[in-house]
Design a protein around this nucleic acid. Structure first.
Lengths: 191, 191
DNA sequence: CCGCAACTTGAATCCATGGTCAAGATCGGC
DNA sequence: GCCGATCTTGACCATGGATTCAAGTTGCGG
């Protein structure tokens, strides 16, 4: 694993690292659809180099996604496990995912399945979806969460938030968060 | 008012009408950002003619917006007036606006204030916002609607729905509607 | 019917982005 | 140090939409 490829020339290795770093910055700030030109500029190379080294946007994303996003999402998944109350657990999961979508455009792109070509991403999304389904079922079992809510709904609620978060750059985080709470509140069983 | 402009030649008048009609169709179907090419094709003229006659997208929009959208929105406003229960009235207003946003991309563009240059649109939006504020206040007075909800929130809830509706083309109307209900439900006072 | 003003056209320009590639620059083994 | 293999560059093409305008077409008053 340390040297599967014939080994790169020193300058190439330096560039690969520089590009990865730049991509992390740019993607974090503006999402996975940022112009590659911008990444190139940030890395101090020309975009041709990115295509040469990573084969295009998809390859570049694959090369940084783990560090960029995966740990954030798995972090939420594990953090939520410790919560006792199933309702609390379910709501906390959604809340955190929704905030992640606001805070990290790149994570948002991943959750929106904006990159259907990337295997690790798809896997991650599916894992998250399954988890959400489980949390939902447990929460519903308490009778405190609407039972007409489906896994599909939850997926779509996340999708909707993603769309919003994308457009939200200007909007203050606090209002966003509050409106998330309203929706969350609406998922509880009726009075 | 019948003939302020020197009077158009017959073919020009015919074209103006044709373009207006085509624009109504196209805008209704794909929103106010549809390529002008498409409008031109539908009208059987070249896009140059649209620029010549209307001075560009903005002018074209101004020329059709009344017929396109205004009556839909004012229709909702008046329809809602007859509802007795303030809570019901408020919720019905939101519900109908949200569905309008799904059903008519053009109306949605208007509500999203996507065209800040057009006076009648801005006026219409402001009127709608005021109405919404009033409905909210009355609904809150019953104690059945969260009193931490602000007019600003309501505006933003509509904005959020608009963003979603824009991206929603594929999504079934029914799910959209259901998720609207969830949010609506979340606006009621807590248990 | 003429002839000009009014109209229309579509080719041209611009912009922003994704993506490619021949040619020149540089590394590093010998 | 030399020279070929490896890298990088930046100019180039393509796409899709907005916008303009010179040149050609057409209505219509006289």
């Amino acid at each position: 694993m340390t040297a599967e490829t014939p080994r790169l020339r020193a300058d190439a290795r330096r560039n690969v690292e520089g590009i990865r770093t730049a991509a992390l910055d740019v993607f974090r700030a503006h999402g996975l659809n940022s112009p590659l030109d911008e990444v190139a500029r940030a890395a101090g190379v020309s975009k041709g180099t990115i295509y040469h080294r990573f084969g295009g946007r998809q390859g570049l994303i694959d090369a940084v996604v783990e560090e960029l996003v995966a740990e954030r999402i798995t972090g939420i998944i594990t953090a939520v496990r410790d919560i006792e109350d199933p309702v609390e657990r379910f709501e906390s999961y959604l809340r955190q995912i929704w905030l992640l979508q606001y805070d990290e455009p790149a994570a948002n792109d991943v959750l929106l399945r904006a990159m259907p070509g990337s295997d690790p991403l798809v896997a991650l999304c599916e894992r998250a979806s399954e988890i959400a389904g489980g949390l939902l079922a447990e929460a519903q079992a308490t009778g405190k969460v609407r039972d007409d809510l489906t896994s599909e709904d939850v997926y779509l609620l996340i999708w909707e938030r993603g769309i919003i978060a994308r457009a939200c750059t200007e909007q203050p985080r606090d209002g966003y968060r509050r409106r998330c709470e309203y929706t969350l509140r609406g998922l509880r069983s009726g009075a």
